[in-house]
Amino acid sequence: MNKIWIITKRELQSYFDSLMAYILLILFLGFSGFFTWLYGSDIFFIKQATLMPFFNIAYWTLFFFIPALTMRLLSEENRMGTIELLLTKPVSNWQVIVAKYLASLLLIFAAFVLTIPYIISVSSMGNLDLGQVFSGYLALILFSSMMIGIGLFTSSIGSNQIVSYLLALFIGIFFQVIFQMLGQSMVGIGGHILDYLSTVSHFESMTRGVIDSRDVIFFAGITFLSLVFSEIMLIRKRFA
């Protein structure tokens, strides 16, 4: 655990040193704030004391931002060769993967903490369902965790950050849109499986305030699988 934290700390430091963290926080807050309060189907438009507009815009904002956050995590190490240094220190492959995953997750978590004023504002305007807010944030964290997992995996494949970013979006879009579309056009067991693999339904039911273990397992499962695949990619490099 200690080793993981040492690497996580370094990754976080590098996010802040490279300004990546500030850019992400400003863009995320700006983007989600703009659409939550000022434009489109914002809170004043729907006239309800709810954070649903925020959850929905954050869902897509995170989809595009997280791969940008994760794209350099391992690809840069592969490109510079620093992965060799890291893995010849007394740390395991798994510790490296988990540490990098945690660093991104903590940064995203910090972004969510900065949206606490949203909760305070909305609850002062009307009767805000705090249970729903909690499950909505949980959904955002679980969804971010899944995207970080996918991003980390695509970053572990090669040494090019852009390829990693685009590949993460490509894999992500299957979960966001394509599985759902295919699921609707198919009947029987195949349709059910594709439906289950689509993030939209899991995310929506959680933002409505329903915490179902199936939804949690879905996000946690994809995250875990992505981390395992990332580790396999690391191990593969040590054989070739």
């Binding site: 370094r10 430091q13 590098s14 040193d17 490279s18 510079m80 060769g81 620093t82 060799e84 240094l85 010849t88 007394p90």
Partner: peptide
């Protein structure tokens, strides 16, 4: 734990 290793091309975290 007991090895000190300097790899070829000396990779380092350049931003640190």
């Amino acid at each position: 734990q007991n090895i000190g290793y300097l790899p070829e091309n000396n990779p380092l975290y350049e931003d640190m």
